[in-house]
Nucleic acid binder design. Structure first.
Lengths: 329, 329
DNA sequence: ATGAAAGCGCTAACAC
DNA sequence: GTGTTAGCGCTTTCAT
């Protein structure tokens, strides 16, 4: 049985109010009283019960981060950025994983509800805010990250998906490619839509007709990247491929390696996200780099500001990607 | 302001006790009363306050998982295994990250304390249980995972590190190598010690003298793998290298690629953990595969069992690794 | 078949 | 400079 504030007060011969104030430094307490309290705390191995504290004060100094795929280092890199700023401000981070399933996401959100958290950062798997109705009730500030559900008017942090893909595809076109495959994530997500829009725009601006058969979408996971690449290789005559997420890129590369595709001679490839392994591939992979850590930092900063000042309406913050040219195209 | 049980009781014209029992299905309530309560809950968008619930019932249906490095997919894969079993039993998972820093680990543990969690799974960065004194106070069951602090008598889940490395090094020796480099993680960790023990044993059994200069240890991160590889390449005449963690392996590969080492002609390499990119390297990497998902499942199952039955002393569960031979050696 | 009330551990308003 | 006390939202015992 953990000891409570009462035990400490008893042992130190003071009131629980005094103990509370010593613990929180929230009003003056004489040095000798303080010393007695600290001694008692130590002897009893006292840790404040943060559940009771949260219940009473209606704040937990904890923020939640709900991600769609724990296996995707894009999100864990973001988490590191978030943690970096939270730590400095005395906040804790707890993570949830929706596994790209709406039902699981709702379940996690219901758990987050009930003032367990003072704020939430979410990369939602929902396509529209309607789907989150009833679980995002405005009890705490929310910052949307990466993918933004339709109708979202809260704060949101994202990258210039459309432009990023426009630029990459334009490079491919300039190299002479016209049959360019495109693999996207779940088609309900804003990121997928924006990236495909950029793809279309680049082709159109270059006067190349868009063939829908060259565009494939799936669930953002590795297996799916593998499968969609297989389809494109078998069913189309593409000469270049852009994969819009790092997990799917790994899947694509696996298929290509198994079938001994030579890059860039047989196929040019551009992936998303830049991790150590991108450079280690054979050949080194050209990628669209996303500022993960910075996305996390930005989201955390915006959220903390919003916690301090809940009013006024949400804003959009767009960070920039960077195209990194290596030998795969 | 979220609505409370009182609001629901008022609206439904029943007592709060009845609402509670309806919510939890914990005693008989007539169908019509139930219906009225459900209606009120819906209209008020009522979500039970889990903080209050935890405070009162002294359980949270939540378990914590403290990991040393969010960027290391070994741990996120484990987290997926944990989540897989927790979900089925109605438990939630919250993650913490110690970033391999003892101070941060203690901080996270202090937050976990205070019955916010019903149990803990931890891959500790501490070398001995002494360092965790005062924060692991026995208020909830604990399962240690992967690395086991000295003096630990609680449940622990690990792999056969010693044997795994013994086997891999023996394979290298059989190929004719005698000057074999070894890169380990933090030297205070059990995993590092066991892996290095396996390395020494393999050499000794083969009648090869162990040179300490061929053994290097660092902080388990990518940069460190890079740096230690540089040292070994510049300062020794090794012909083979074993790296005992996937992050450090990426660092090692980066150095080797930058300096155009040819594998396995110039250097044979064996890494730890098997991810998609291991196969995609040039050449495909031989690795010691660890059963991550299964480790997570096992840990969660052991923990839940322990929550049900807290007595009796901790046991050790050892899962097996698997050597995967590819072309890098 | 349902209600009244105690109390989990803490914070903060009020009192002296 | 410190103590008393109400009450956060809930579960659960004891009533009836």
């Amino acid at each position: 049985m953990p000891s409570s504030i009462k035990d400490v007060a008893g042992k130190a011969g003071v009131s629980i109010a005094t103990v509370s104030h010593v613990v929180n430094g929230t009003r003056y307490v004489s040095e000798e009283t303080k010393a007695r309290v600290y001694k008692a705390m130590k002897e009893l191995q006292y840790t404040p019960n943060s559940v009771a504290r949260s219940l009473r004060s209606r704040k937990s100094k904890t923020i939640g981060f709900l991600i769609p795929d724990l296996a995707n280092t894009f999100y864990t890199s973001i988490a590191e950025g978030i943690q970096h700023v939270l730590r400095q401000k005395g906040y804790q981070l707890i993570l949830g994983n929706s596994n790209e399933e709406l039902e699981l996401e709702l379940q996690q959100l219901r758990m987050f509800n009930s003032q367990l958290i003072d704020g939430l950062i979410i990369a939602s798997t929902a396509s529209s805010m309607n789907e989150l109705e009833g679980v995002l009730k405005g009890d705490y500030p929310v910052v949307h990250l990466d993918r933004i559900p339709q109708g979202c008017e809260q704060d949101r942090i994202l990258v210039n998906n459309d432009e990023a893909v426009y630029e990459a595809v334009s490079e491919l076109i300039q190299k002479g490619h016209s049959r360019i495959g495109m693999i996207g994530g779940l088609d309900r997500l804003s990121t997928t839509k924006e990236r495909i829009a950029g793809y279309r725009r680049a082709l159109e601006d270059a006067g190349i007709a868009v063939k829908d058969s060259l565009i494939r979408m799936g669930n953002s996971k590795q297996d799916c990247g593998y499968e969609l690449t297989r389809q494109l290789c078998e069913e189309t005559d593409m000469t270049a491929l852009l994969v819009s997420n790092n997990q799917m890129t790994l899947g694509a590369l696996t298929y290509l390696k198994e079938h001994r595709y030579r890059m860039p001679e047989q196929l040019s490839l551009i992936g998303f996200d830049d991790y150590a392994w991108s450079f280690l591939m054979d050949p080194p992979l050209s990628v669209i780099h996303q500022p993960c850590f910075e996305l996390g930092e930005k989201a955390a900063n915006v959220l903390l500001e919003r916690i301090g000042q809940p009013l006024s309406k949400g804003k959009e913050y767009m960070l920039r990607t960077m195209f990194i040219r290596r030998d795969s195209f």
